[in-house]
């Protein structure tokens, strides 16, 4: 009886010991010497591995932070300035503050604004739909609504509003990693500077067609009339290819352009409700 126990004990211990030696040799032979700082930087990073920094993952960014002397170009959009400041302090390097950004969907063409002209029945992918044709509305530039941006978002920040079939960004969840910007085959999504109270003013249209054509397919399309640009006191608005663009770096959120837009393509978000102002009807504006 005891001999069996002794025998098993010795053999198991022997095998264990042998394996331990092998493991030790292997670990010594294949040792990778790595800067311990990398692990410390990784610990600070948010571990979302989203690729928003331009690197494959958080570890790759840490390696870059540790190895490069000038890290002013490196930035983790998810962690933001506080995380970058912490890393800079740890490594004794400097990183300039960057403005936090947020993804903005520049299309407001839900079905009442942009009537459907046909019914898409292919695979649920904007990329495939975009390769096939102009889409199920008259507009060849706007949102296709199949949700490629929703699928790539690692933070659950984008969802399709079932009523409008358009994506909606949750500003608090959005990490500005830019995955959706890359995924959108029509460049509808843009990263814009985040402002206090999540206030935003932007042209919610990417249609580069001539005004009449754009307007025909969508009632809230930008027609490139240039009224907003003329009235902007901060020269933040430019017109290119029949399309107005508000530079979020220059815009002071004065809201002057919003009232000027004849089609309502400029949106103001998260502002308090305006005092009743004389509303000019669309027809008058177009006629003038």
């Amino acid at each position: 009886m005891y001999s069996i126990i002794a025998y098993s004990f010795i053999s198991m211990a022997g095998i264990g010991g042998l394996l331990a030696i092998v493991l030790y040799i292997v670990s010594q032979k294949f040792k990778v010497i790595e800067d311990p700082m990398i692990d410390e930087v990784v610990a600070i990073l948010p571990q979302a591995n989203c690729g928003g920094c331009g690197f494959a993952g958080c570890r790759a960014l840490s390696e870059a932070c540790v190895s490069r002397d000038d890290i002013s170009q490196l930035y983790c959009p998810v962690g933001g300035n506080s995380v970058m400041a912490e890393i800079a302090e740890l490594l004794g390097k400097t990183i300039p503050e960057k403005d936090p950004m947020v993804a903005v969907i520049r299309c407001n063409g839900h079905h009442s604004n942009r009537p459907r002209t046909n019914q898409y029945d292919g695979a649920a992918s904007c990329k495939i739909k975009n390769t096939l044709y102009t889409g199920d509305t008259g507009c060849a530039h706007g949102c296709l609504g199949e949700g490629d941006c929703v699928k790539v978002c690692n933070f659950g920040a984008i969802s399709i509003n079932p009523e409008t079939s358009l994506p909606v960004v949750d500003d608090n969840a959005c990490a500005a990693c830019g995955a959706c910007v890359k995924a959108c085959p029509r460049n509808v999504i843009e990263l814009r500077k985040k402002s206090a109270k999540d206030r935003k003013i932007y042209v919610s249209c990417v249609n580069r067609e001539k005004g009449t054509v754009a307007r025909k397919s969508c009632t809230v399309a930008c027609i490139g009339c240039g009224k907003c640009a003329k009235n902007c006191p901060h020269e933040a608005i430019s017109i290119e290819n029949n399309l107005a663009y508000i530079d979020s770096e220059k815009c002071k959120l004065c809201r002057k352009c919003v009232g000027e837009c004849p089609t309502g393509a400029i949106l103001e978000i998260n502002f308090p409700v305006r005092k009743a102002t004389p509303v000019t009807s669309e027809n008058e504006v177009l006629a003038s």
Binding site: G122, S125, I128, T131
Partner: peptide
């Protein structure tokens, strides 16, 4: 499954 839809995409 929309096999060709995706394959066409991958091919291009």
């Amino acid at each position: 499954r929309p096999l060709l839809d995706y394959i066409r995409q991958g091919k291009s």
